[in-house]
Design a protein around this nucleic acid. Structure first.
Lengths: 104, 104
DNA sequence: AAATCTTACGGGTGACGTAACGATC
DNA sequence: GATCGTTACGTCACCCGTAAGATTT
């Protein structure tokens, strides 16, 4: 299980449509279909209901998406916190002067 | 950024030692070193302090590890919830009877 | 010199794209 | 028959392992 898979999963979950999700993600739809199938395989249970025309989260998928949403949010927060803590001067990432002084 | 990278990161953060972490993860140490460097590159800032002899989380790494820990926990919870909600009969994953009855 | 991390480089696996198929309305 | 999802298959990128280099004690 990898983060790309999980982002694919969240996009399909939100749009409930493989083709549209694949376009939103910038990959082809077979690739997306395959990735979702692989994820379901790894989890050991299907996450969507297929009725031939569209896809929709089933009970497991709904539960899982809540946790995955939190996980992706946490990672995003972590990255943001680092980005906010640094300042960029002439292409170099440096600590703000205030923090630098506090550390020395 | 991928989940494997993040698990590598957490292991190195915990053990503060590339070689031991690589053994714990079952990969070679150059591979781990490379993976960590790649992660730091993607984030845009170093996450560890190197003093030639060992590695230790720096300020950014410490912040980031807190968020990543939460994220990995979230994903683990999601998988667990699915596993606990299902019962396995003759190789098939099925809802427990109680849930099945509640839905019908 | 021993231990540790980093850089260089080559090979095998897997993700993705194109094509063909299946199914539903 | 049009639209959408799945399966088949080949290619290219990337991860990892082996080897060599750099650095600290």
């Amino acid at each position: 299980m990898e983060l790309t898979q999980l982002e694919y999963f969240m996009t399909v979950a939100r749009l409930e449509h493989m083709t549209m999700a694949s376009k939103a993600l910038g990959i082809t739809q077979p690739a997306l279909s395959h990735a979702i199938a692989k994820l379901e395989n790894e989890i050991g249970a299907p996450l969507f209901e297929r009725n031939g025309r569209n896809v929709k989260l089933n009970r497991n998928g709904a539960m899982f998406s809540r946790w995955v949403g939190k996980a992706l949010q946490n990672i995003e927060n972590g990255v943001k916190e680092i980005e906010n803590g640094l300042i960029r001067i002439r292409g170099l990432l440096l600590y703000p002067i205030s923090i630098f002084l506090a550390l020395t």
